[in-house]
């Protein structure tokens, strides 16, 4: 089965040449439509995708402008107001320690939960997206190359095996030892750590994507349409771009969704091991990890970051579903 570009071509052709009378459509001819408009139409029909996109937009927007609306410093300690509960606890427990100065409560050192959630979201979203994109880029690149070019298959897949078997913790420690000082000097303590974390998470998580993409490419490149494309002399990179990549889109989308969650969680594991951001720099993963010990007394402290991570991941997942459907010409227009 061929993919979208050819279909479009045929459609467009059909619109220009005057058809034989008997085959003429009864109704008025629809004006030619651009492919991306079709994609958007299809995407809009997908309720889940719209909701996912809305959530992502909402969360991204929230963490970006949040600090200007809620100006409390997430690192400021307010020891007299420690261990406050969220304001809604007052609904069923009139004795709970609540107050509008900390609407979502405060932690064991009196840091405000709301501003931590906003600041933590900035860090987690940035790390999650950057690391996920990096890992997708490497993984897809390696996978496609290995699957399509027989010569590269052996070396690239052995490289994948090597990366799969590297123990992550020593790798991290080596990276921190070698690169922290220069990165800190050039980008500051937080910026340097951000680059380091994104790189480490990225280069330790691309391997499954690479193997999955390679497996699919191996199967697809033997299909008739690729053979056809090759027989008319299409360049290998054109074939990859127009025929292979669109067909391996769905496993890539799944990898992306799972990768975002993994990156956010891995970041928290890193700061847990002391190789992540400075300890007073909040992220969703770290808030969750810190709050586990107190989850019976202060369930909101695990729920807030937990729900935030889940919603983000769900949002990306539905968005990915919608995009995949919208980009698939076999589904589009039905």
């Amino acid at each position: 089965m061929t993919d979208s570009p050819q279909d479009d071509l045929i459609l467009a052709e059909g619109a220009r040449v005057a058809p034989i009378e008997a085959l003429k459509d009864k109704g008025p001819m629809a004006p030619p439509r651009s492919k991306w408009r079709d994609v958007w139409e299809q995407f809009r029909k997908h309720k889940g995708a719209m909701m996912g996109a809305f959530f992502l937009f909402f969360i991204t927007f929230g963490v970006l402008i949040g600090p200007y609306l809620w100006t409390l410093d997430p690192q400021a300690l307010d020891i007299r107001n420690k261990d406050m509960r969220p304001i809604y606890t007052a609904l069923w427990n009139s004795e709970a320690k609540v107050g509008w100065n900390h609407p979502l409560g405060s932690d064991q050192l009196g840091r405000d939960n709301l501003s931590q959630l906003i600041a933590g979201g900035r860090a987690s979203m940035a790390v999650g997206w950057a690391a996920m994109l990096l890992s997708l880029l490497i993984g897809t690149g390696v996978g496609v190359m290995a699957g399509y070019f027989k010569k590269l298959d052996g070396p690239l897949m052995r490289l994948t095996d090597l990366f799969l078997s590297l123990p992550i913790l020593p790798l991290l420690l080596v990276a921190v030892t070698l690169f922290r000082q220069p990165l800190r000097a050039n980008f500051g303590p937080e910026g340097g750590m951000f680059i380091l974390i994104v790189t480490v998470v990225g280069i330790t998580s691309w391997m499954p994507t690479a193997r999955i993409v390679r497996g699919d490419v191996l199967a697809i490149k033997e299909r008739e349409f690729v053979l056809a494309a090759r027989s008319i002399g299409t360049q290998p990179f054109k074939i990859i771009k127009r025929h292979l990549l669109p067909n391996v889109l769905s496993p890539i989308m799944v990898s992306a969704t799972l990768g975002l969650a993994t990156a956010i969680i891995t970041e928290s594991a890193l700061s847990f091991l002391g190789v992540g951001f400075p300890s007073d720099f909040p992220t969703w993963g770290k808030m969750l990890a810190d709050a586990v010990a107190r989850m019976e007394d202060f369930p909101e402290r695990v729920l807030l970051p937990g729900v935030a991570i889940s919603l983000t991941v769900l949002g990306v997942n539905y968005l990915g579903d919608g995009l995949r459907d919208a980009l698939d010409p076999r589904i589009r227009g039905r």
């Binding site: 928290s268 989850m295 937990g306």
Partner: peptide, 11 residues
């Protein structure tokens, strides 16, 4: 499944 995956086992 997505909620399950995005909540880490340490929780």
């Amino acid at each position: 499944t997505m909620v399950g995956f995005s909540i880490p086992p340490f929780f």
